[in-house]
C-alpha cells in the first residue's frame, strides 16, 4: 500500500493559492509530486461538477483551495464557494462518498510553505486510504468511459 501513488487534482484560484504554489516554487520548497493544479479565476468559479468529474476520471483525492475569507480578489467569490462546499460535502457524505478524499483549504499568495504542507499531508492521507476503489467500480460500470 505504501508505494501507492495517489492521483490528486487541485482546483485553485489564481490570486491566492495558485500564487501561493508559485511562491513555494520560488522558495524551492520540496513536496510530493502527486498533486496537479488546475487554475481558476476564483473559488466561486469552481462548480461542484468539476469535483465529481475528477473522481469520475480516476482521481483518488481532490483539493479545493482559494483565498482566506475576506481576502477574495473578487470580494465574495470564496464566501459563495464556502456555502457550496458545506452543502456539497454533507450531501456526498450522505451518499456514502468518502469525504476524507476531499480537502478544502485557504492558502494565500504568501503561504507557499502552507501549500507544500497541505500537499504533503493530503497526499499521505490519500496514500493511507489507498485507491478510491468504490468510485472506480462505478466508473468501470459506466459505458461511457470519459466525458469528451
Amino acid at each position: 500500500m505504501s508505494d501507492f501513488q495517489p492521483k490528486i487534482v487541485a482546483f485553485v484560484c489564481t490570486w491566492c493559492t495558485y500564487a501561493g504554489a508559485d511562491l513555494a516554487g520560488t522558495s524551492r520548497i520540496k513536496y510530493e509530486p502527486n498533486v496537479k493544479i488546475i487554475r481558476f479565476p476564483c473559488t466561486g468559479r469552481i462548480d461542484y461538477m468539476f469535483l465529481i468529474k475528477a473522481f469520475a476520471n480516476g482521481a483518488d483525492g481532490v483539493i479545493v483551495s482559494g483565498c482566506h475569507p475576506n481576502d477574495c480578489h473578487y470580494v465574495s467569490g470564496n464566501f459563495h464557494a464556502r456555502r457550496r462546499w458545506i452543502v456539497f460535502r454533507e450531501l456526498v457524505d450522505f451518499l456514502g462518498m468518502d469525504v476524507n478524499r476531499l480537502c478544502f483549504s485557504w492558502v494565500s499568495a504568501a503561504e507557499g510553505a502552507q501549500w507544500a504542507k497541505i500537499v504533503n499531508s493530503f497526499t499521505e492521507e490519500i496514500r493511507q486510504l489507498g485507491p478510491y476503489k468504490a468510485y472506480m467500480e462505478l466508473v468501470k460500470k459506466d459505458k461511457n468511459e470519459s466525458v469528451f
Binding site: L91, L138, D142, K143, N144, V147, F148
Partner: peptide
C-alpha cells in the same frame, strides 16, 4: 460538455441525483 451520462448507467444516475 456532456457532464452527466445520458444513459441510465449507475454513475450517470448517481451524478444526476447529486446535480
Amino acid at each position: 460538455p456532456q457532464w452527466i451520462t445520458v444513459e441510465a448507467t449507475l454513475m450517470g444516475n448517481f451524478e444526476w441525483q447529486i446535480t
